[in-house]
Design a protein around this nucleic acid. Structure first.
Length: 701
DNA sequence: CAGTGAGCGAGCTTCCGCTTGACTT
């Protein structure tokens, strides 16, 4: 690079973004990344001076000193520095901290702030023409947010250490997520399924056979409660004559959906592919950073942590010309407009393909299977979002049969519209085929098909649905959605069972404590109230310190009160067992440690004997050992299951034993999972072919 | 697809929100 002329240093957050912008701006500019925040509160202590207006103490984040140093070096060589971190609260704070750090080293630097909400050459060049200064009010709002979260987290957690167990945690976000999951679990427990029945009649006209459902009986909407009632009705209608009473045709318009935000992408990937939020984000990150598609590494999608559905002008133009080329009939007269939500911070565009010409099929060869899946839905959703609506036509036919009113219907697409661009996202339903029917016409009834059902309660939360709920309540941010679930899992507050989030005993105890002692804080509305206060700070109507002060008084009084008065339930989680300690003869208890559950002598600390929890008897005929969960040295890697008599007995399996015995041979069963069968149990004995599928399991449960 | 490989734990913990790699405290 030539050093003639002026040099401008641009600092953004993401390295991938820096690379792209560097390409757009070329010589004369240097573009560097801070890789997120550089400064934060130290982890080891509160670091908030409560006596002096809650002033926080910031330090360089561990591992970020190198980045800071190189930024300082580059800044020293530049004529002007433009802080271009994201255009939101956190981004403003990042810029503020960097500015201070640079000024510290070179007080005379020319430092300005620029913002842009999309990474396109024109928009960036335009923003460089109009540099501004750091918005101190925004920085203060971030400071208030940060201090509040630190106070809540670092004051509540020690209560749990003292009263329940060391190492536990609580916070504004995670504790509300836990509360939602616990409350849902109570609903599930209290739910009493009610039996009901449906009756379908199998009808025939000419060669075509179809079904119609009973919707009214004796002029009333019906609720068939049991099989006796079914018999009564089917008996009464046995020889009834079925006549077409009414034929209705209605048209419906189906609009395409806007491109993805982070949370919507996580939800869709969970529903379509069963990805956890973590997995979705890892794949999206790889697509964002770029995949070698022959002509070099190219970022395939825009930034994946966003709350906005906004699309840049260029991208809109490109997708419209793409649609006009390949789906000319589906190009709307003018672009489809989607309104951005009120609470959207809008620092980034929606998640969309960077180049719409990169169709999923055209780059399938360079993508992994999972990358292809995720890229496909991002591409399909974006392209279809700028196409015309689909139209469907529904025929509804009513039949009168004595006192019974039966109904059938069929929906077919008359205009495919945006659905032409959908493959993976296309609905797989096939329309029912009905013969032509006209009012007064008689059809033949071949028989009845009654079916038993049970009412369903609210389902347990999954990764996708808890994130959806949190997002709707304004709790958490795109960058934290996936980690929220991980925290609850790593604290053993929650376990995942077949993708469902189920609270553990520990999770319930923590939730009961927090919601009873801090009902206003561990509450869906707390974040919303906080955000309102922060808005006040951002609009210079309120001082950040007063937001904290107003909150802190009552809060700390309550914290101290609970610390002093609440009875400790430490050890209440320790489950009694039938095992006796072979060292001292006292009974052993099951405890939760950092790496999961283990057995410990109840005589602790006099007797420090511990051992792993036994999951099953060793299946080797001449071995009396037990099967326990093990991990590679350092507690890393996936669990495997080995015999306590190792190395004398080298039995090992990588499937978790269940507490069920094989009805054929008596050895234990293990859990397995594969695509065809889903979850199932099979016998550990390789000579025994016993296999237990979900259906059999449901019956025995 | 087959083969993976054997600790530690109970006292120094914890928050939320930005962003990606990583070498030893």
């Amino acid at each position: 690079m030539k050093d003639n002329g002026k040099k401008i240093l641009l600092i953004v957050e993401s390295p991938a973004k820096a690379k792209t912008i560097q390409k757009y701006l070329g010589n004369g500019y240097a573009v560097s990344a801070s890789i997120g925040h550089l400064f934060d509160l130290p982890k080891s202590r509160l670091a908030i001076d409560i006596e002096h207006d809650f002033e926080p103490e910031y330090i360089t984040i561990r591992g970020k000193a190198k980045i800071l140093k190189s930024l300082q070096q580059e800044a020293g060589k530049a004529d002007q520095i433009l802080l271009a971190s994201d255009n939101d609260r956190e981004g403003e704070a990042i810029s503020f901290h960097i500015k201070n750090a640079l000024k510290c080293k070179y007080p005379d630097l020319n430092i300005r702030r620029i913002v842009f909400n999309e990474i396109t050459p024109n928009v960036i060049r335009e923003s460089i023409k109009h540099p501004g200064d750091i918005d101190q009010a925004k920085v203060n709002a971030q400071k208030a947010r940060r201090v509040l979260d630190r106070l809540v987290g670092y004051k509540l957690s020690p209560i749990l250490w003292k009263k329940v167990k060391n190492g536990l945690s609580a916070g504004r976000v995670q504790s509300v997520a836990l509360k939602l999951i616990c409350e849902r679990e109570k609903e599930v427990e209290n739910f009493v399924p009610e039996e009901y029945w449906s009756i379908e009649a199998e009808l025939k006209k000419g060669k075509s056979i179809f079904r119609a459902s009973l919707v009214k009986y004796m002029g009333e909407k019906l609720r068939i409660k049991n099989s006796n009632e079914v018999l009564k009705i089917t008996d009464a209608l046995k020889h009834a004559e079925f006549r077409v009473k009414d034929v209705k045709v209605s048209e419906n318009t189906l609009k395409p959906k806007p491109p993805y935000t982070t949370s919507k992408l996580q939800q869709e990937a969970a529903i379509r592919f069963g990805f956890t939020s973590l997995k979705t984000m890892q794949i999206a990150q790889a697509l964002y950073e770029g995949v070698n598609i022959g002509s070099g590494r190219v970022g395939l999608i825009t930034y994946m942590r966003t709350d906005s559905i906004r699309v840049s002008g260029i991208a809109l133009h490109e997708v419209r010309s793409f649609i006009s080329k390949y789906y000319a009939q589906e190009l709307p007269y003018k672009p489809n407009v989607y309104s951005v939500g009120r609470r959207t911070q809008d620092a980034h565009e929606a998640i969309r393909p960077t180049y719409v010409q990169n169709t999923p099929e055209s780059i399938k060869g360079v993508l992994s299977k999972d990358q292809f899946k995720l890229y496909s839905i991002i591409w399909e959703r974006f392209v279809s979002s700028q196409m015309i609506p689909a139209k469907s036509s529904t025929v509804t036919v009513d039949f009168q049969a004595k006192e019974g009113l039966f109904r059938t219907g069929s929906t077919k697409m008359v205009v495919k519209g945006f659905q032409k661009a959908l493959k993976i996202l296309a609905s797989k339903e096939r329309p029912k085929v009905l013969p032509h029917l006209s009012v007064g016409e008689k059809v033949e009834c071949l028989g009845f098909h009654p079916e038993q059902h049970f009412t369903l309660g609210s389902p347990r939360y999954t990764d996708a649905s808890i994130i959806k709920t949190l997002e709707e309540k304004g709790i958490g941010r795109p960058s934290t959605y996936a980690p929220i679930v991980s925290v609850l899992l790593s604290r053993y507050y929650v376990v995942r069972k077949k993708r469902q989030l189920v609270p553990t005993q520990l999770g319930r105890i923590i939730n009961d404590l927090l919601t009873s002692q801090f009902p206003d804080l561990v509450n869906e509305n707390f974040t919303a109230v906080m955000e309102k206060e922060l808005d006040g700070v951002e609009e210079n109507k309120k001082e950040w310190v007063s937001v904290i002060r107003d909150f802190y008084g009552d809060f700390i009084r309550q914290v101290e009160h609970v610390m002093e008065t609440l009875e400790s339930i430490k050890g209440v989680m320790d489950e009694e067992t039938d095992y006796t300690c072979e060292k001292c003869g006292r009974p052993m208890v099951k405890k939760l440690g950092r790496y999961g559950f283990f057995l410990a002598c109840s005589g602790f600390p006099e007797c420090r004997n511990t051992k792993a929890v036994s999951l099953a008897d060793c299946p080797r005929p001449d071995c009396s050992g037990k099967i326990v969960a093990r991990r590679k040295q350092g507690g890393r890697g996936k669990e495997f299951y080995g015999c306590t008599n190792y190395p004398e007995c080298d039995f090992v399996s990588h499937f978790r034993p269940t507490n069920l015995k094989c009805p054929k041979c008596g050895y234990f069963l293990v859990e397995k999972e594969d695509k065809q069968r889903g979850m199932y149990k099979s016998c550990i004995n390789p000579d025994c072919a016993y296999l237990h599928t979900q259906e059999v399991m449901d019956q025995s449960a």
